[in-house]
Nucleic acid binder design. Structure first.
Lengths: 142, 142
DNA sequence: CAGGAGGTTAGACACAGTCTATTTATTAGG
DNA sequence: CCTAATAAATAGACTGTGTCTAACCTCCTG
């Protein structure tokens, strides 16, 4: 398991592990994502980073999140057409998505198994498999 | 299996079946989706409907697609953060998504099986399960 | 013919995300 | 240290998808 992600020192080490130069803004953004183990959107991260102290621009938040994704420090979750969520958990796992509230919950992939996948079209390789279980509050119909 | 979807008469019948008043614009939009068995985005549909003949506004295309989804005539596919695709196939099935080209291909769900899904959180029911296999051309790395 | 419901429309708007040009930090070399 | 070069951050303009509003059109019914 990973080292604690609740101190900024641990964050700095982790950024270096992933080949990311640890600047102030990157540390704050990573800290925001890793300390609360939650699925946040770019604008939530922007708000969180700026309520604390100092300033980080919108451009930097987007640049940084895209960098983190490219370096595989975090991962995108695409479930809502209007915004992307970022997931600090890069282990293989899947998601419940509450279509009413917008809330995302992890599904550990240990138990979940997928069988009978057809052979891939020629020349293609799998990058990742997303399983999204869309749920809604039972008393509502439609 | 469904009747042929290659004539406008068949489209009109189908719209009625789903409780949708078949207007000119709705027929053209449905025809566009059902005649080519493809996954199109709203702007592709807007373009396709308007190159033929006459005019359909952007607002109507969005209104109509949302209506079709609500009536379960078609279904949304959420794989790309920048746009929604619409799928004329409402049978249970899943998708390959080529992250390079943006191309979507169906995976028939007959073979594909999902086991070990954890019990749902209290008070929630499943609306739908999406399985998206993200693929990329093999010769490219990352 | 009057009124109303449902449908369509143009254009303004909202908002996530990107781009560009400039400024600021950081690093490496002398 | 000082300087040059590179990497990162910034404000603000911009793009593209999708929504909203208010006007208008069409058809049906009384």
């Amino acid at each position: 398991m990973n080292t604690e992600m609740h101190t900024r020192n641990a964050i700095v080490d982790r950024l270096r592990e992933y080949g990311i130069n640890p600047t102030h803004q990157r540390i704050e953004i990573a800290y925001t994502l890793f300390s609360r183990q939650e699925h946040l959107s770019a604008d939530q991260i922007l708000a969180a980073v700026n309520t604390r102290h100092s300033e980080t621009s919108k451009a930097t938040v987007y640049n940084t999140l895209n960098l983190f994704v490219k370096k595989k420090l975090i991962r995108e979750v695409i479930v809502d057409p209007s915004k992307v969520f970022y997931d600090p958990n890069v282990h293989i796992h899947h998601h419940f998505y509450n279509v009413e509230s917008g809330q995302l919950m992890d599904i550990d992939s240990a138990a979940l198994e997928l069988t009978g996948l057809p052979t891939l079209p020629e020349g293609l390789a799998i990058e990742r498999i997303d399983v999204i279980v869309r749920v809604y509050p039972q008393h509502l119909n439609s």
